[in-house]
């Protein structure tokens, strides 16, 4: 019976094509440095999964955010583990994406024909930092609150549009319930959507051009 199901699916999906196009591709000799991109991807997926669990209990309001996080840590079975992974995953992801970018830079893998891959990569880098910045506020504790105060203040120093930017970020002149709501929405919908789309293009380009080879003397 399994065989029949397989055949039925194969007829509609075409596993062989998938295999030939996605998996059975030639690559130049790769090193451990080439694993950093997929490791960033792995962390993105982990952040997504653990993040979804966290939203089950998290409440984005100044009155309840702190207590809901506390409840996740103390009251929910394995809540501490899920939050711990999400917390450390964020830190690791920033580090990994940064080192991945450095390796692409040092091996000059951003050169023809991979310039667009690099540009998309910059978008990914900024979006990753944006995830960190918006996520940090959500627990609504002293550390996160004041980090956001200084972070948004810096945006306020931009000549001409500074005040406007500050108000857009905070949803008003001061940090408030609106800021939290805004950051929450950016953190769980807007930026992840951007990230996912950019990662899609990034991967498409990588498959299209193949992984670059390690530069040798003749390059």
């Amino acid at each position: 019976m399994w065989k029949n199901i397989y055949l039925w699916l194969d007829e509609r999906i075409g596993f062989n094509d998938l295999y030939a196009n996605l998996l059975d591709r030639p690559e130049p000799k790769t090193t451990w440095w080439n694993t950093l991109g997929s490791a960033s991807l792995f962390l993105f997926v982990m952040q997504g999964l653990t993040g979804i669990f966290l939203t089950v209990y998290y409440t984005p309001s100044p009155d309840h955010a702190y207590d809901s996080i506390n409840y996740i840590m103390e009251g929910v079975a394995f809540g501490w583990l899920i939050r711990g992974i999400h917390h450390w995953g964020a830190t690791l992801m920033v580090i990994l994406v940064f080192i991945h970018m450095l390796r692409v830079f040092y091996t000059a893998s951003f050169k023809y024909p991979r310039e667009l891959t690099w540009l998309i990569g910059i978008g990914l880098f900024l979006a990753t930092l944006g995830m960190g910045f918006t996520g940090y506020l959500l627990p609504w504790n002293q550390k996160s609150y004041w980090a956001t105060v200084v972070g948004t203040q810096i945006a306020g120093t931009v000549p001409f549009i500074g005040e406007f930017t500050l108000k857009v970020l905070r949803g008003g002149p001061e940090l408030s319930a609106l800021t939290l709501q805004r950051f929450f929405s950016a953190h769980i919908w807007i930026i992840p959507a951007v990230l996912a789309a950019l990662i899609g293009v990034h991967l498409f380009l990588i498959i299209k051009h193949g992984e670059s080879h390690f530069p040798t003397k003749e390059d």
Binding site: D24, E27, T35
Partner: peptide, 22 residues
């Protein structure tokens, strides 16, 4: 590429080990 490896299983294998380590 001619002197290289296959994405599956060579490259993927390293990627998986790295992700597992992380």
């Amino acid at each position: 590429l001619d002197k290289g490896e296959r994405f599956w299983p060579d490259t993927i294998f390293k990627d998986l080990i790295m992700s597992l380590g992380i």
